[in-house]
């Protein structure tokens, strides 16, 4: 019982929650439920107001959230999650450990921005 409380307090500190299967707060759910994939992370960011050349941006279509255990894998071999125009997203199905996150913006022509600065999150660590 003490271990569960400890894990909960850490996840609250870093903004992560364990996904209790069947729990009341589980509104997203892991894609592949399993013992190692039971955490989700909610992220928020500020959308760009210009394009890469500084012109006003009028064709923003959405964002893509990248995540990987290692920042070197983040943009190429990590997972990617497309989200809409809301400047926030929830990555689910994460196993416990260190995760890197970054986000890009996509316009209606399919052009993708450079990645934001990444953030590192300890997920489910005791």
């Amino acid at each position: 019982m003490a271990g569960v409380l400890s894990a909960l307090s850490i996840t609250l500190l870093v903004g992560c929650v364990p996904e209790a299967p069947g729990g009341a707060d589980d509104t997203v759910g892991p894609e592949t439920p399993g013992p190692e994939a039971r955490y989700s992370v909610q992220l928020r960011w500020l959308p760009p107001e210009t394009d890469a050349e500084g012109q006003p941006l009028g064709d923003l279509e959405g964002f893509r959230v990248y995540y990987a255990p290692d920042s070197r894998l983040l943009m190429e071999e990590g997972g990617a999650l497309a989200v809409g125009l809301e400047a926030e997203g929830v990555v689910t199905g994460l196993s416990a450990g260190t995760w890197q996150f970054a986000v890009t913006a996509i316009d209606t022509a399919g052009n993708e921005s450079a990645a934001s600065e990444s953030v590192q999150v300890e997920v489910g660590a005791p």
Partner: peptide
């Protein structure tokens, strides 16, 4: 002409509570 200029990168990425 086709739009080939991507948006600027998002900023202020942070983790929030669900």
């Amino acid at each position: 002409a086709p739009d080939t200029t991507p948006p600027a990168a998002p900023i202020g990425l942070r983790v929030v509570r669900p």
